[in-house]
Simulated scan of single mutants.
Amino acid sequence: MSYFVNVTLTGLTQGMIYAAFALALVLIWRSTRIVNFAQGSMAAATTFIALALVQAGWSYWLALVVALASGFVLGAIIERVIIRPVEGGNELNAVIVALGLFVALQAGIAIVFGSSFQSFPAPFGLEGFSVGDRRIALTPNGIYIIGAVIVTMLLLVALFRFTRVGLAMRASAFSQEVSRLLGVKVGGMLTLGWGLAAVVGSLAGLLIAGGGFVYPAYMDSLIVFGFVAAIIGGLDSPVGAIVGGLILGLALSYISGYAPRGSSLVTISALVILMVVLLVRPGGLFSSTTARRA
């Protein structure tokens, strides 16, 4: 029983990390209708900025603030300089540019910060809590991760449902021409969307890095699992990102913990889960629209 509890708690914490990255994908999709495959490399870049500050003697929390601010600036610059020139053309143009940006940013990180593994500090303890004479797989840092992701989700829900800025961002994503006629500054909304998505992605990068090792490509697996989580929940739903992340995290944790050679089945299991969800509900579990069929 204790093994099951520990496997579940591990999946819960890992699922919340997937959910954090899925939230970044949901935010960029809701505000620009673009899937940003470069989100992981952008998050890695800001994580290395935070690491450099910590190594220079700054506190973790101050480095966190600087990393999030750097993420916003990076996202805004990328939208203005790289993405905007191709936004008016074929929809695949932005996706292809994002893939190229993914590779370029990873190379840039390796040039500036090196390609070796580096330890990243955790803001809270990594030792599990004790319950009686047993130790469970839930750490103070794990609680911090869960709390940070839930707060981020609530802020995003509030942004899109209860603020004029969130409404303007969604309107700009769906119909730029109509939005301009209504007085919405579409260019500013798109830039804001990229900046905020980069902030959430930076948070995901810092959460997964805490207490582990980072290198230029350390976000690659999170990109895959975060994207799967976002699709499971529905790319238009912040709540769906959380649910999708938890479903994926728990499922992969159970497979890794109980299936023979489970650790080698994790990636293919994520693909199977994704295929099942897409067959049953193509728009995701929390999609608000009905998929169009041929």
Rank of each mutant, 00 (worst) to 15 (best):
F124V: 04
A270K: 04
A104I: 15
S264P: 00
G89M: 05
A24M: 12
Y218L: 09
G283R: 07
A230D: 11
V272C: 06
W29Y: 14
S202K: 01
A158N: 01
I28Q: 01
A107M: 09
R293Y: 15
A98C: 15
I231C: 04
A98G: 11
I82L: 15
V66G: 04
F113S: 10
N141W: 09
W29D: 05
E79R: 09
G244M: 13
S119D: 11
T47R: 05
L155V: 15
G15Q: 06
V73E: 00
E79H: 12
V81T: 13
A204V: 09
A270N: 03
G257C: 02
I78E: 01
T290N: 02
A291L: 12
V35S: 01
V199S: 02
S221T: 13
L252W: 02
A217W: 02
G283Y: 06
V73L: 14
G57E: 02
V5T: 06
G188E: 14
V277P: 01
G128Q: 08
P140W: 05
T152R: 10
A104N: 00
A20N: 11
A69D: 00
S179T: 10
L207Q: 04
V243P: 04
E91S: 14
V200G: 07
A44C: 09
V228H: 04
Y18G: 06
V266I: 14
A241S: 15
G257P: 01
R30I: 11
I231N: 00
A98F: 11
A44K: 05
L62D: 00
G201H: 11
T290D: 08
V200I: 14
D133E: 13
P140M: 05
G15S: 06
A198Y: 03
A259V: 15
L154K: 00
P85Q: 02
I242K: 03
S253P: 12
I17T: 15
D220W: 02
F37A: 03
R161Y: 10
A171N: 07
A56Y: 03
L51Q: 03
L271R: 09
G11N: 03
S179E: 12
L252G: 02
V266S: 03
R80D: 02
G257Y: 01
A43L: 05
Y3K: 12
L248R: 01
M153D: 06
I150H: 05
N141E: 09
G283E: 13
S264N: 05
S264W: 00
L23P: 10
L9F: 07
I136Y: 14
R281I: 02
L74A: 04
V151A: 14
G187I: 03
S115D: 15
G71I: 02
L154C: 08
A168C: 08
I268M: 14
A270I: 07
A173I: 10
G166D: 02
K185I: 00
G226Q: 09
L105P: 04
T32V: 13
M1H: 00
A171S: 14
G142E: 04
G234A: 14
S130C: 05
G40R: 07
T152N: 08
A209H: 05
R170Q: 15
G195K: 01
G108I: 14
I247T: 06
G244N: 13
G249M: 05
A209M: 08
S59H: 03
L182K: 09
I17W: 02
V178K: 11
R84L: 07
N90C: 00
A63C: 07
